[in-house]
Amino acid sequence: MISKQSISTLKFQQSGSIRLEVEGLKFLDNGPYSFDIKKKECVGVSGKSGIGKTQLLRAITDLIPHSGQLLFDGARCSTFAAPVWRSKVTMIPAESFWWYETVEDHFPLKQKKQSIVEQCESVGFADDVLGWQVGRLSTGEKQRLALIRGLSNTPSVLLLDEPCSALDEYHTKLIESLVLQYIQDKRSSVLWVSHDPDQLQRVADREFSLLKNDLVEKRK
């Protein structure tokens, strides 16, 4: 379960070493982009609709062709098999997809069921959620469960693409708390894409504005 610590308390317990380094990243017509994310850091990214925020995340997960360097703890992306890279650097898309009948079928078998249930409860689900049929889930429920599914791989870097776009204020706060708690517990790093400046203000240690060919750091 998530502790009752406030978001602001959770936010400022970061350490310094670099977890993910992006150097001269180019994809499609975008870039070059260079930035890094430190361990236990949450970096926010905003930008106009269609500017390429989602594609930036897809390029970082190596899902689309790109040039430039991606380094995880100093090791190049190409030195990892792609599935290993994506297990370490996991993207949660804004729209989630489901392919089996029940929620439980979508979680890795090795994962302890109890911890998944606890995470589900922390974002507002009943304890029988794993047995639910996917067909009965609302868009918002799918969005919350997709985050839990992504966290079940315990990625070191989490790339969130508007993770609260289908959620009300109450559930948005639950998701923010869960992610910030995860950062602290697992010493992971997060790149959080959002259109909501207030949300980025709440969760991000640093904020960037994405342009077609540049990533501009905002002054806090």
């Binding site: 899902l63 599935p83 994506r86 297990s87 993207m91 949660i92 898309p93 392919w99 992504g150 791989n153």
Partner: peptide, 8 residues
């Protein structure tokens, strides 16, 4: 692609 993103 969702499955690829999950490390499959």
């Amino acid at each position: 692609e969702q499955r690829l993103l999950l490390g499959q």
